[in-house]
Write a protein that binds this DNA or RNA. Sequence first.
DNA 1: TTAGCAGTTGTTTTT
DNA 2: CAACTGCTAA
Length: 702
Amino acid sequence: MEYLKNLNDQQLKAVQKIEGTVLVFAGAGTGKTKTLVSRVFNLLEHGVPPENILLMTFTNKASNEMLQRIEESGYINGKLPFVGTFHKFGNIFLSRNHHLLEGRDGNFRIIDYSEVKSIVKWILDEDEKYRKNFSSDEVIKLISKMKNSNVQSHEIEKIIIPMVYDRDIFVKLYQRYDAEMIERNLIDLDDLQILTYKILKDNKELRDKYSNYYKYIMIDEFQDTNKVQYEMLKLLLETHSNLFVVGDDDQSIYGWRGAEVTNILNFDKDFKDVTKIVLNKNYRSTKNIIEVANTLISHNKLRIEKNIISARESGEDIFHFQFDDDIAEAKFVAKEIEKLIKNGEGPEDIAILYRMNSLSFHVENALLERDIKYEIKGKKSLYMRNEIREVINILNLISNPFDDLVFLSVLKQTNGIGEQTIAIVNQLAKDEMTSIYETLKSENLSFHFKTRARYLKTLVEKIELMIDLSKNDLDKFTEEFECQFEIKNKIEKYLKKEKISKENKDKFETKLGNINDFYDLMHRFFATNRGEIRAFINMYAINGEDEDRIQAVNLLTIHLSKGLEFKHVFILGVNQGFLPSFASDNEEERRLAYVAFTRAKDKLYLIYSKQRTIYGRRQDSKPSRYLHEAELIHSARIEQNRHKTAESEGEFSVGNYVKHNKFGNGEVKHISKQGREIFLDVAFENKVRKTLISTVLQKVNS
DNA sequence: TTAGCAGTTGTTTTT
DNA sequence: CAACTGCTAA
Ligand SMILES: Nc1ncnc2c1ncn2[C@@H]1O[C@H](COP(=O)(O)OP(=O)(O)OP(=O)(O)O)[C@@H](O)[C@H]1O
């Protein structure tokens, strides 16, 4: 059998074990994914019906790739296995079964981050108390954390949040949020998992049906599964217990969104009769790359030691260099890539990795300058930009004027309508127990709104005009859309004004360009597909733009690079504060660097600089501690602390009392300086300890 | 009642 | 840099 030929003994052993529980535990590039796919082939070869196989991947991209390989294997003639993310599984499951939840019926709509945010903001505005204690981002983060840890809003005793926050108020917010989601029949990304779990848990018959159907369950990147996924998995295993998972604790990089590495570390104890297979031969990278990666990751304490050995030649040395600033960095990278391509390398074999999306900026310019094609993976796509959201909000409203959430967003962005008017509209609709659209149509507007009635009336008329047009003449739709709502026109008018700064001019010109691009897409879509508006929105909202098979240099974050491999890998911003990030200098950051290093097959470039821009300001920046730890640079005294510490700095000294408007009073324990900013390590009276920038703190006398 | 300006603040990663 | 807050003229 072809698929068994290129496997080593250990891989073969894993592939050929058909029944029971298997854990493939192995470091980067040792062939875990390859083993997983081969095992699917082996199951099919042994006559397992494809539809009885459930294969969970971490990203949609990974699942598409695997599915393609399975389809091309020749074992498939009818049904396919389920290959996808837990989210996709949840989406399909809920489409069939969400009516089993109390208060849910009909078709739900999945909302993205920006809509979650506007719901949370509406809720926060309901009560002064809410607004004083939480920002919308905090609430979103905490609710997401709860949902990923499998804590629902009615399980009050299980809701545990950091001490800084008022727990009682948070419980109320979480419950309000859930109520709102049910009321509007909306589902957020976390709901796709937790609600699936809840339904399976509460409905024995359904659970039996599913767990009987999926005879073989497999999971890739098991180190990054969270609590809900783990519990859901156990429910699905009730009938057959044929489980095959692969993972690497050293590559667990999603702890911040609830992934629990203990799922893989305690796997042998938590499941019975586990066959554990360890792979340690790396087929991907040269010896030099693996040596550096191994040296770095050995600094982590919370890990299981693996000794990975490269099956390849020593290869080229690791390139590392400190440039003057991020622009010099970018220029070098672009020049080097141009050289590689001239020497016959494919641009798609080259990747530029970074910790933060904002780091791609200068490299993009440098690549553009040299006319090198590149592709940014997962960048805030066109449709997430504010000016495009405005267009999409209106499109959404035209496609369904009864959706109040969308209506409120459109009201908010409409000239002439503001806070007061929106509050009244919202209240009126609530009183009438009907949608905003119907309220605005049936009520005597001039009675309630005086001068603002006119604005509301024209908005409704415009929407209705466009609804009509969308049914009759999609060819003219885009043109008429701009005529009615003047999204472009507003910006053009602004640009014609006398006194605008250069920055603003640039900013608004990009906005204009974005809108033009989007109108183009819209027009082309409506010209070719005589489809509905909804189809257009879904295409961009859910799938994003097609980003496949272009011959271009890859630009992506380290998080997105997990599971991928490239011949040449450039890592940008290998500086203290960037990798590791300012916000967290922990073992997960080191794992992130390990993942980045081990993506490279042939050559690894570590790029760092003396100065970097952040929030539009230039700052001095030191080389990353990981360069020392990987023994790439050696200095007489390795600086253990990431900041220079001092007894006093500016107006602050160690022992001072300071006040923060959220955390309260506390004592300064350490002072450090980075660039021009002063950071204070403060022990607050409520037992929270934090390092904060001095500008948010006030000195108090004690 | 709203738009627009000026001033402040926070540091990240995503299905 | 971008998101948010508070103030003021119209
Ligand atoms: N037995 C083998 N012989 C030759 N090449 C192999 C073998 N096993 C795997 N490879 C190759 O090694 C590379 C890495 O394999 P794979 O992506 O499956 O590793 P992985 O363990 O999933 O890596 P990671 O954890 O970094 O995602 C691939 O290019 C694969 O084709």
